[in-house]
Design a protein around this nucleic acid. Structure first.
Lengths: 230, 230
DNA sequence: AGGGTTGTTCTTGTATGAAGTGTTTATCAG
DNA sequence: CTGATAAACACTTCATACAAGAACAACCCT
């Protein structure tokens, strides 16, 4: 299946934003993108609009388009919803998971443990994602899984800041164990609670989080063209 | 604030789809839309793409663009998520609602009762929406409220089919009373449960629902250009 | 007669140019 | 030096022209 230019561009930009190669607040100049990708303005415009629709980019009329800069208050709100979605996935998964999926979940968890033992932070990040994706799939609700993935994408530029909190990794693993146990036992309420806490607990260390975020100038709504953009 | 042509077009099409003037599966011919609205293909294309992003329209490359036709299985999944979002709104609202918002909620409920007494189905539909919107706002989570509204929009073309189930209206009102009571009492768990049930209960009468949906040819994935489109 | 192939005709996707509108900056006057 | 006004610039938006790919149908060959 051949993807259109606009699609490729969208994926590339999305990847850039998610992986921090373009930081929130950075300007996205259409003409520059045209030259970079060797296409005309039309597909660029389309890609940008799709990113606007998914919330990763904002466009201020007559001022330019920028990588979306999410305010701290909205960030909290998004985490709150993310926790709920994860919890719902866990609740459904505990009731609906099949034997093969359960085995896949166990293996994903084991890979997380291995990555943690090896001390490979990047690898753990990846395996952690795979672990959660197992739960999404096990919920047997494709729409829910899609929404959860989309929101997670949108939060990714900020998630990467908080996984490096001291001592987060061991407790994260312990939470994973509790999650697996709850799903294995088929205890829906317990799985929901465990997953919700697993996401929300990161918000508890909020002062740390805010501190690290502020250094990136996330919360400068009042100055859209602030230092980070220039 | 002057809206662009693409925006006006998008709103018009969205309204058409939501209110059933364009049924799921119907073809959206770009050229026809151009003539209808007196604009060129560019803004039409833009509007269509925005609708694709919000899930109301699907475009099959080289085959045409159609009003999104959601399969029954996915419809169930979406209702499941909708119930969860509503429940979450209720839980947060029970904890966070202010006095003024509580009064607005009571009044919205009263207007629902009035519409029901008057037997005005359309009016009830509108007031019911206002009632739920009160709860969204009272959750004090703007992001959550936005997601809930968006999903509700996406479900609207199908919701209209089920509100006419016999005896649904009186029980719907009773559920509203329970919801208001739970929020007034500040009982988060009870409010969450009441709202979740309020949405899910509609799925219980699923055979009725499926029956009415099938007549509209919603579940004809195998025949994309089925009878409904011609 | 049936199946494969080829050609035509839709369809989407891309490019480019032009215009209109808001913002910003520079200059002039007080 | 400060304020206002005007002009220039930059961005978005729309239109039109063009290209390429896929589906469908007709036709030919087997």
């Amino acid at each position: 299946m051949k993807r259109s230019n606009a699609q490729r561009l969208r994926d590339a930009l999305e990847d850039d934003i998610i992986n921090g190669r373009r930081t929130p607040g950075e300007r996205l100049d259409p003409d520059t993108l045209c030259r970079e990708f060797g296409v005309s303005r039309t597909p660029v415009r389309e890609a940008v609009q799709q990113l606007v629709a998914s919330g990763l980019v904002t466009v201020s009329p007559k001022k330019g388009t920028f990588v979306a800069r999410v305010g701290i208050d909205e960030l909290i709100e998004m985490f709150e919803v993310m926790a709920e979605l994860e919890g719902m996935c866990g609740r459904l998964a505990a009731r609906r998971i099949g034997e093969a999926e359960l085995e896949a979940l166990r293996q994903a968890h084991e890979r997380c443990e291995a990555a943690a033992r090896a001390g490979d932070s990047d690898d753990y990040y990846y395996e952690n994602e795979a672990f959660h994706d197992c739960i999404y799939r096990a919920s047997h609700n494709g729409f829910l899984a899609g929404e959860a993935r989309q929101l997670k994408q949108r939060l990714k530029p900020y998630r990467r800041l908080q996984l490096q909190v001291r001592q987060r990794l061991p407790s994260s693993l312990a939470e994973h164990r509790e999650i697996v146990a709850a799903i294995e036992a088929g205890e829906a309420g317990r799985a929901e609670q465990a997953l919700r806490d697993h996401v929300l607990i990161q918000g508890e260390r909020f002062s740390d989080f805010v501190a690290s975020v502020r250094r990136f100038g996330v919360y400068r709504e009042a100055a859209p063209d602030g230092a980070a953009a220039r």
